[in-house]
Amino acid sequence: MIVTRALTKRYGTTVAVDAVDLAVREGDRYGFLGPNGSGKTTLVRMLLGLVYATSGEIEVLGKPVPKRVAEVLPDVGALVEGPAAYPHLSGRRNLALLDAAGRGGGRRTRRRRIEEALDRVGLGGVDRRPVKAYSLGMRQRLGLAGALLRQPRLLVLDEPTNGLDPQGIKEIRELLAELNRAGTTVFLSSHLLAEVEQLCTRVGVVDRGRLVLEEELATLRAATGRVLVGTPDAAAAATVLDGQLESRDGDRLVIRHGDPAALNALLVGAGVRVRSIQAEQRTLEQVVLDVTGPGSDRFGAAG
């Protein structure tokens, strides 16, 4: 769905995107992560033909961009750097103009498609007030509605939950998962690790313009070889597991062990009550911090 080869963008002596080889497959929920200022938005704008690359190649939906971007865009829904709108017009009027400026769909079904898009993003009941009276969250939802007007094969979203409250973030996450199950590939650029971890199946991490990691999320979050145990008999458990106990915090133990089931059997056999037990997994935050250099701008930990 998206392929880049040695994609590079320079602004004078500043390298914003540095030889990036990106591969987004059909059906992916792909999280494109990076600290603020790492080159994420510049790369997204190049994918859509909004910024020209200094060097390298881009393919979107099997066609070269920007050379054949006009053939690609009807099948791509995009939201980049916040929603654009005429502030003096209503949300519906803005969507009608956006739809008329695109290709496909047609006038006869325009009103229905606009209402369906508004319903999907939680704006079905919005009145005729101008967009300048919208909250930031409402504007963000309107931008998403515009991206969904033609049931795109590919969604390219840059910080789509910006300005939304926790409930709104949850709703958009569920909507994107639903669209993906129906066949839409989702490419989500964000610095919010928690949101990407809950939604995405693959991630790419960019740092200082370079792609430093691209992998399945499940692979990245593999077991660490430690087991987390909750027990009211923490002292007894520590005695049984002498040499394997890495740390203890009240009734919570971290134990070096590769098999939670076998560890549970050992503890129960020794008379230790086990309240909870699970294999420890690396968090996405740990993965990203491992591959990004010191001095990178901060990531957001929550939506």
Rank of each mutant, 00 (worst) to 15 (best):
Y134R: 08
Y134I: 12
S135E: 08
L136W: 00
L136I: 07
L136A: 09
M138D: 12
M138P: 07
M138G: 13
Q140L: 11
R141S: 06
R141G: 08
L142N: 02
L142Q: 04
G143W: 09
L144R: 02
A145L: 07
Q151Y: 05
P152A: 12
L154F: 09
L155C: 05
L155D: 06
L155Q: 07
L155R: 00
L157Y: 11
D158C: 01
D158Q: 01
E159T: 06
T161K: 02
T161E: 09
T161Q: 06
N162E: 11
G163M: 12
L164W: 03
D165Q: 10
Q167D: 09
Q167F: 03
Q167L: 06
I169P: 01
K170H: 15
K170D: 15
K170R: 15
E171Y: 08
I172Y: 04
R173L: 03
E174M: 11
E174I: 01
L175I: 03
A177S: 07
N180V: 04
R181K: 14
R181N: 01
R181F: 12
G183N: 04
G183C: 07
T184Y: 04
T184S: 14
T185F: 05
V186A: 12
F187E: 00
L188E: 04
L188R: 02
L188Y: 14
L188A: 02
S190P: 11
H191N: 06
E195D: 03
E197K: 01
E197M: 08
E197H: 01
L199I: 13
L199W: 07
R202P: 04
R202N: 07
V203R: 05
G204P: 05
V206L: 09
D207H: 14
G209K: 02
G209P: 04
V212Q: 14
V212N: 10
L213Y: 13
E214Q: 15
E215I: 02
E215Q: 10
E215P: 08
L217K: 11
A218S: 12
L220G: 01
A222P: 03
T224G: 03
T224P: 00
G225F: 10
G225M: 10
R226A: 15
R226H: 12
R226N: 11
V227H: 05
L228S: 03
L228K: 13
V229E: 00
G230I: 00
G230N: 12
G230D: 15
G230P: 08
T231E: 00
P232C: 06
P232I: 02
P232L: 14
P232Y: 12
P232A: 06
D233S: 10
D233M: 08
D233H: 07
A234P: 14
A235S: 15
A236G: 15
T239S: 13
V240N: 08
V240K: 06
V240D: 03
L241D: 03
G243L: 08
Q244N: 11
Q244E: 15
E246Q: 12
E246G: 08
S247F: 05
D249N: 04
D249G: 01
G250V: 01
